[in-house]
Design a protein around this nucleic acid. Structure first.
Length: 289
DNA sequence: AGTTGCCCCTGCGCGC
DNA sequence: TGCGCGCAGGGGCAAC
């Protein structure tokens, strides 16, 4: 569920609550939550106890907590993961997977994940940038993101533009909601072939991606239900600003035509049938419906 | 080598 | 009331 704005909101909260604190104990309540930590649960627990956490980092939808400026604890929220700060006396959440306590006896850090697509792992030597995240591109909020490199790489691809936006090795942090929102703003249908986009069109799309992500961060992300909340259990408010995602049948905020929903990769895409017409003569990438 | 699908899970809302 | 189906903010990896 969480995309860049939601993960960034969690990162900021985590940074306030855990940076500078030292882990006392770690409890793994579900093995799937650390399946990416190959050496196993015992090793995971042992390599975290006594470690001091540094400033919380993010790339795309991944988070990491530097440990003593050497290793890192990597986290991904998947579709339903939460990182929550809780007092020790708070009852265990139904889907509590991993619990961290600290030597200061302050609030616990809890990883809660209904669908278990998320997970945690320790990255040896990963404090600056975990090697496990080397394949993740920079996100468009990152000051080191190079716009013209993205524009060129996008236009080199032979795929549909929405698929490209979701490709975390090309541009990270964008998921199903914000891809649809950026495409709505750019008035592009997601099935448009990337190699037919002009440079100006690609630049406009990138600007809209960056804008919508930034605005959503300002609202604390998008919450449709209790599955996405920040570290204090609070919802975000960007759902009020959505123009396309989840709005099937509602009037387009630009032209009034009813927003359409189309099947896309076992999910859905939302767009305006008038502002975002399907590509006319489909190239090879545009045949699929 | 680049691109496309399948699959991993749990829970909720809907229609019958 | 109950059950089956479709659907949900993601991504790794096998198969083309």
């Amino acid at each position: 569920m969480p995309e860049l704005p939601e993960v960034e909101t969690v990162r900021r909260g985590l940074d306030q609550w855990v940076a500078g604190r030292t882990i006392a104990t770690v409890e793994v309540l579900h093995p799937r939550a650390i399946r990416r930590h190959v050496p196993g649960a015992r090793h995971f627990v042992d390599s975290l106890a006594g470690r001091k956490i540094g400033p919380v980092q993010r790339r795309g939808k991944y988070l990491w907590l530097p440990l003593d400026e050497t290793d890192a604890l990597i986290g991904h929220l998947g579709m339903s993961g939460q990182l929550l700060m809780q007092p020790a006396e708070a009852p265990d959440e139904l889907h509590l997977r991993v619990r961290f306590t600290f030597i200061d006896d302050g609030p616990q850090l809890r990883f809660v994940d209904q669908r278990t697509f998320g997970g945690l792992a320790v990255s040896p030597g990963g404090a600056v940038l975990p090697a496990e995240l080397a394949h993740i591109a920079r996100d468009p909020i990152d000051p080191s993101f190079v716009d013209e490199e993205f524009v060129a790489a996008l236009r080199r691809k032979k795929t549909e533009v929405k698929r490209a936006l979701l490709d975390q090795t090309l541009i990270s942090g964008v998921g199903n909601i914000y891809a649809d929102e950026a495409l709505w703003r750019a008035q592009l249908h997601g099935a448009r072939p990337t190699d037919q986009l002009t440079r100006p069109a690609a630049r406009r799309l990138l600007a809209h991606v960056r804008d919508v992500l930034g605005e959503a961060i300002g609202q604390g992300g998008t919450s449709f239900d209790a599955l996405y909340v920040n570290v204090n259990g609070e919802s975000g408010y960007f759902d009020r600003s959505l123009n396309a995602y989840g709005r099937e049948g509602e009037p387009c905020d630009r032209c009034g035509a009813p927003i359409r929903r189309e099947a896309f990769m076992n999910r859905s895409s939302y767009s305006c049938p008038r502002c975002q017409p399907r590509p006319r003569v489909p190239g090879l990438a545009g045949v699929r419906r």
